[in-house]
């Protein structure tokens, strides 16, 4: 109880700090992409995540590892504001994702294991819907042909240009995944959260995603990748966090994460 109150007190202080900081433009220290202090999330009586302290600077890439049910997906959903933390203080780019969704959400995207597609909408229609909804102020003033051209270009980048006119219901799991990955291009976010980006993809698709994420990283985007595909994912990420039963049990370089370490780190703490 006491620790919660202390934490609560400190986060209040933190929030006033950040308000004055944003009020004074002289403060040029770039905000962390992610700052989590004592974040926990409870579903009913069970804690899915507890005592999560994370600081991720802009441009960093972090690999999130853990067994099924270790809290990876819950953490990603917390980070993108789809879930509210039960306790603790979570800030993305200095703002709370739940309180200021319109400041935070345009700057991030989540590629979930759900693909967020409408069965009866074609690939091209999905792209155009996302482009429209992304509320890029230039979109609605762009002529229709230019929009069309841009949408087709985007489909080419994921290798779906041949299937542009087919509804999503006809797509294989891998093709759905490719299409949903396209969102990271349209919204051009600064922070990209990926939940199992390599699942359901063939080797060519996995290479495509790897190249793509490497490019995003080179452009200074922040990546958080939750994946069981340690080999591919550790190539992409510099740092790694190991989660076990909702808590962080190991932090270090992504290159050091092997199946052996994973077993060791999780066993020594259970």
């Amino acid at each position: 109880m006491a620790s919660y109150d202390q934490r609560h007190g400190s986060c209040e202080m933190h929030s006033t700090d950040s308000i004055t900081a944003s009020g004074e433009p002289a403060c040029t220290q770039p905000a962390n992409a992610v700052t989590a202090r004592g974040v926990g999330r409870r579903f009913g009586r069970t804690w899915a995540l507890a005592h999560i302290d994370i600081e991720i600077k802009q441009g960093e890439s972090v690999l999130l590892v853990g067994h099924n049910g270790s809290g990876k997906t819950t953490l990603l959903r917390l980070l993108c504001g789809l879930l509210r933390p039960s306790t603790g203080d979570l800030r993305l780019f200095g703002s709370a994702p739940q309180q200021q969704p319109f400041e935070v959400r345009p700057r991030l995207t989540l590629v979930s294991h759900r693909t967020y597609l409408y069965e009866q909408l074609t690939a091209l229609e999905h792209v155009r819907l996302w482009m429209g909804l992304a509320m890029d102020s230039t979109y609605h003033s762009t002529p229709a042909e230019a929009q069309e051209r841009r949408a087709k270009e985007l489909l080419e980048t994921v290798g779906l240009e041949q299937r542009a006119a087919d509804p999503a219901v006809q797509f294989s799991a891998g093709m759905r995944k490719r299409l949903s990955l396209l969102r990271t291009q349209i919204e051009d976010p600064d922070l990209i959260l990926l939940d199992e980006p390599f699942s359901a993809l063939d080797p060519a698709g996995q290479d495509m995603v790897t190249d793509w994420l490497a490019q995003l990283r080179a452009r200074g985007k922040t990546l958080i990748v939750a994946s069981h595909a340690l080999e591919q994912a550790s190539k992409l990420c510099a740092k790694a966090i190991v989660l076990h039963t909702g808590q962080i049990v190991w932090r270090g370089a992504a290159a050091d994460v092997t199946a052996g370490l994973l077993t060791h780190a999780t066993k020594s703490n259970s």
Binding site: H51, V62, W250
Partner: peptide, 16 residues
């Protein structure tokens, strides 16, 4: 009655 305190921290870790 639904409120349950956060489980104790298992491991003291530094910040990343």
């Amino acid at each position: 009655a639904q409120d349950v305190d956060q489980p104790d921290r298992l491991l003291e870790g530094g910040t990343l």
